[in-house]
Design a protein around this nucleic acid. Structure first.
Length: 480
RNA sequence: UCCUCAGUAGCUCAAUCGGCAGAGCGGAUGGCUGUUAACCAUUAGGUUGGGGGUUCAAGUCCCUCCUGAGGAGCCA
């Protein structure tokens, strides 16, 4: 645990308009507050009592650190307070004093302790480590545990850092739609959005469901990506990004997939794939530094209890040049590795998880961009390279997590894009508006998608995406 | 969706070849003059995930369903 004063420091200490003091205010500079009368409000994390005195670890959410409250039989309600169950919310007044104990520099010597809301005796969080699996069954309460308080503060800071990064560089934040009428966004199975009666939907002459009678007068779904929409804004504002929820109805059961997740998708005009990669690299380094600086207590906690190499790895990455390697070279490297793979690497085939792992964990040990994939395994909108067989795509692979970013330079040539749409067996009329962007002053442009949760995982060392989303949605699981 | 493993007290787990269902933590009660997941003592707590089967006997073996985890595919 770092010394006092290292609670997340962004912004003013919370509590400026409050009638009481926050732990964060105390922690950020406790010395001027010594011997002062304070009121704090928060929840009992743990309690240790003896015959004549007792200790409460109080957490008020403003700060990772708990405030140790000391009280003794001088309190009229001493016996009652000593029986307050874990989780009880409290109002405490007292004097801030230097702590004689070793675990904390200061503590609050209580003059009065009042329960705001008593906790029931079956409060599920105990004074011991719980499995993440169990905590997933109580997402509404796991926020009161060290790990999840740290995860969700880092998640919040990371979102802020991303916004700040883009705004410092003149990007415009665009809210692309969540309900979409196009089923052609390219990526994956979509969730249908409808108000039709599931048992008796209207049918057309051929007996098919008649979506013209649906709420929007057509078939609609939840978005799987804001990219195509944001391109329209890119070719007006120049530098834009989206940051919002996306939905995939894929039956994926892994540590890295969720049915609802957040994505950041920047898009830059008059830019090529190299610009795109530089942006991605700058962005990741920026947010890593930001979070290390703003959440030292949380990051120290992760480094100690979740992933021992975390801080060292992040500091290294924040300073290192990311590796860049073409797909073709990656395949050669994999083929020449002498490594046994379940799927032999072969040009024209996708790079498998085991291949990614080898590249990031064995060969480079840092983030690596893989570029210029065969056109047949990538999306229609990616710009065709001069060789006619690869496209200007890039994936950023990071150790432990795998793919964290996928991006490309977009095909800006109207005729080439039309041909690619036809080649991929797509219907041109579905993409008329998208093709318009190439007819009316098109320009080379590029962008990428960063999986927000994967970034949180990368920054915290957490291994399961379900543990970095407040209320995770995965196949067969949407209880809360 | 496929493969593998798992499900026993509130939590974390044990239970030998199929033979009396247990421990630690947490809870309750009592003790303890500075604790740090405090400590010491006493105590309550079970339809062994659901259903079916084999057997004198099933937590244990078989079938099936449900749930979870890990891996794969798909991707971010």
């Amino acid at each position: 645990m770092p010394a006092a004063g290292f609670c997340a420091t962004i912004g003013a200490p919370r509590g400026g308009t409050m009638a009481w003091t926050t732990v964060k205010q105390i922690d950020s500079d406790y010395k001027p507050l010594l011997d002062r009368e304070l009121e704090v409000r928060g929840w009992i994390r743990t309690q240790r009592e003896s015959k004549n005195f007792a200790f409460i670890e109080l957490n008020d959410g403003s700060c990772f650190r708990n405030l140790q409250v000391v009280y003794d039989t001088g309190l009229a309600n001493f016996a009652e307070v000593a029986k307050f169950p874990l989780g009880t919310s409290l109002k405490v007044t007292g004097t801030l004093v230097a702590s004689p104990g070793a675990g904390q520099p200061f503590e609050l010597k209580a003059a009065s302790i009042e329960a705001v809301g008593l906790s029931a005796l079956d409060y599920p969080l105990q004074k011991k480590r719980h499995s993440f699996e169990f905590l997933r069954t109580i997402p509404h309460l796991r926020t009161r545990s060290n790990t999840f308080m740290a995860v969700f503060r880092v998640r919040s800071l990371l979102a802020f850092a991303l916004h700040r990064f883009f705004h410092e560089r003149g990007f415009v934040y665009v809210h692309t739609p969540i309900i979409t009428g196009s089923d052609c966004e390219g990526a994956g199975q979509m969730f249908r959005v409808t108000t039709l009666d599931p048992l008796h939907p209207p049918v057309d002459a051929e007996g098919a469901v008649d979506y013209s009678q649906d709420f929007f007068g057509r078939e609609t779904s939840l978005t799987v990506s804001g990219q195509l929409n944001v391109e329209g804004f890119c070719l007006a504002f120049g530098r834009v990004y989206t940051f919002g929820p996306t939905f995939r109805a894929e039956n994926s059961n892994t540590q890295r997939h969720a049915s609802e997740f957040w994505m950041i998708e920047p898009e830059i005009a008059f830019a090529d794939l190299g610009d795109d990669m530089r942006l991605a690299e700058d962005m990741l380094k920026y947010v890593i530094r930001f979070v290390l600086e703003q959440a030292p207590q949380e990051m120290e906690f992760f480094n100690r209890f979740i992933d021992t190499g975390l801080l060292q790895r992040l500091q290294l990455v924040a300073g290192a040049e990311f590796e860049r390697i073409t797909y073709t070279r990656a395949i050669e490297l994999l083929q020449g590795s002498g490594q046994k793979f379940n799927f032999p690497p072969e040009w024209g085939k996708d790079i498998q998880t085991e291949h990614e792992r080898y590249l990031t964990d064995q060969v480079f040990r840092k983030p690596v961009f893989v570029t210029d994939y065969p056109k047949d395994i990538k999306a229609f909108y990616m710009r065709l390279n001069d060789d006619g067989r690869t496209v200007a795509a890039m994936d950023l692979l990071v150790p432990e997590i795998g793919e964290i970013i996928g991006g490309s330079q977009r095909e800006e040539r109207h005729d080439v894009l039309r041909r690619r749409i036809a080649e991929m067996g797509l219907k041109e009329e579905d993409y008329r508006w998208y093709l318009d962007l190439r007819r009316f002053g098109g320009a080379p442009h590029a962008g990428f998608g960063l999986g927000f949760e994967r970034a949180v995982m990368y920054l915290t060392g957490m291994e399961n995406i379900r543990d970095v989303i407040p209320y995770p949605r995965t196949p067969k699981s949407a209880e809360f």
